[in-house]
């Protein structure tokens, strides 16, 4: 098998095993570097898309993959998907992954959540962390990506990370030009939604 496609060709069932690892990787980063835990958002099986607030944060519509009675799921990434419009600023931090696994890991949350994360990371008041908000969320994304790939056998040495990119705004869309599959993990941080997404390119 071509090593480049080795991880992309894993089945949905195999990738569902990545959900708990992504969840653990995220929890470790928040516990150690933020000092406030993220709580996995255990969705009710009768509430397949999660709360409207979470849908707005994660940028997914009603067809956002197979619902699970846990905080993670695997779904196809629709090309040119259009997230719902948001009424207030959100941030998406992204880190590219290249090598045996090709894709993008992203962290998505509302601006007040990102402000709180930066504040807690630096031990500073929320009203003085403005210039650090994007940087802080980018580093969270970077550490989650690195911590996640360290937990997958064969991936630590076979996948490089890009420097983080952060998008901020109330009205933006993320477009995937390659499709593929997406592992999604949903949390609450201080009671507010926060989503982690691993988009795996074919």
């Amino acid at each position: 098998m071509n090593p480049v496609s080795q991880f992309a060709q894993q089945s949905v069932a195999q990738k569902q095993n990545w959900g708990p690892l992504l969840e653990l990787a995220t929890q470790e980063v928040f516990d150690l570097m933020v000092g406030t835990p993220v709580i996995p958002n255990r969705r009710d099986e009768h509430e397949p898309s999660g709360s409207p607030e979470m849908s707005a944060v994660v940028g997914l519509g009603e067809d956002a993959g197979a619902p699970l009675d846990v905080g993670y799921s695997v779904s196809s990434v629709p090309v040119d998907s259009q997230p719902p419009k948001r009424s207030h600023p959100h941030l998406t931090a992204m880190v590219g992954m290249a090598g045996k696994l090709s894709g993008v890991l992203s962290v998505r949350c509302a601006m007040p959540v990102a402000v709180r994360i930066a504040s807690k990371m630096l031990g500073l008041a929320e009203d003085v962390v403005n210039e650090n908000i994007n940087d802080a969320l980018g580093e969270i994304c970077n550490m989650v990506a690195g911590n996640f790939k360290a937990k997958i056998a064969g991936l630590a040495d076979g996948c490089l990370l890009s420097v983080p990119t952060v998008i901020c705004g109330a009205d933006y869309e993320l477009h995937s030009t390659q499709g593929g599959e997406q592992v999604e993990v949903r949390f609450t941080f201080d009671g507010e939604p926060l989503g982690i997404f691993l988009e795996v390119h074919p």
Partner: peptide
Amino acid sequence: ITTEGSEA
């Protein structure tokens, strides 16, 4: 000090 899990 790195996020890289890469031993190499």
